[in-house]
Amino acid sequence: MLTGSCLCGAVAYRAEGPVRHASHCYCTMCRKQHGAAAGSYANVAAAGFTIERGAERVTEYASSSHGRRGFCSVCGSNLYWRSTEAPDRIAVTLGTLEPEFSGPVEREWHTGQKPNWLPVR
């Protein structure tokens, strides 16, 4: 089971595993939403995702015809990404997990948009 919350603590959630995969996405939308080099996610079953506190504080933004991004309306923390084309899955943001995610990040998406300012591995 994964648990997480936003920066201000208004929203808390849980996501029952298993994690299908964890990923970093370098698409422009993820980079802009996160204000970082990538959006980092754990892909889990939507049926096991529950907002335990602060559901009224979660706002969704339709970033594309099929993508919905959930965030806290108080502090702005990015909580999840979900696709209307794959309603059985949801991708929770790794940075909001408590304790921190201990699994491997197995996938990278949109690597052609990876920022040049990232250090080379």
Rank of each mutant, 00 (worst) to 15 (best):
R57N: 15
E60L: 06
Q33W: 08
A37Q: 10
H66R: 12
R20Q: 14
I90F: 10
Y80D: 09
S23G: 08
R89N: 05
L118D: 01
G35L: 03
H24V: 02
R121Q: 14
P115A: 01
L79P: 01
D88K: 07
A42Q: 12
A12F: 08
I90G: 06
R89D: 06
T93R: 05
A22C: 11
E85C: 01
W81R: 02
R53P: 00
G67A: 15
R69V: 10
C8F: 10
C6A: 14
C27P: 05
G103Q: 08
L97D: 05
Y41E: 06
V105Q: 03
W117S: 00
G17K: 13
R57A: 15
G39K: 02
N43W: 00
L79D: 03
H24E: 03
G95F: 10
E98D: 14
G39F: 05
H24T: 13
R14T: 09
H34W: 10
E98R: 15
W81K: 07
W117D: 11
E16S: 15
I51T: 14
A46F: 09
C72E: 04
G54C: 12
W117C: 11
T3L: 03
G54I: 00
E108L: 01
C27I: 01
W117Q: 12
E98A: 11
Y61L: 06
T111R: 12
P115F: 02
A55C: 08
G112K: 02
C6D: 05
L94M: 13
T50N: 13
C72Y: 13
C25E: 04
L7G: 02
V11N: 01
Q113C: 07
W109K: 01
R82E: 10
F71H: 15
T3R: 14
T3A: 13
R53H: 15
H34F: 11
H34Q: 15
T93N: 04
V58L: 07
E85F: 15
G76Q: 15
A38N: 06
G112W: 01
S63N: 02
A62F: 00
E108T: 03
V120E: 04
R82V: 02
K114A: 09
S73A: 13
Y61S: 15
S40H: 04
G76C: 08
E56H: 13
L97A: 05
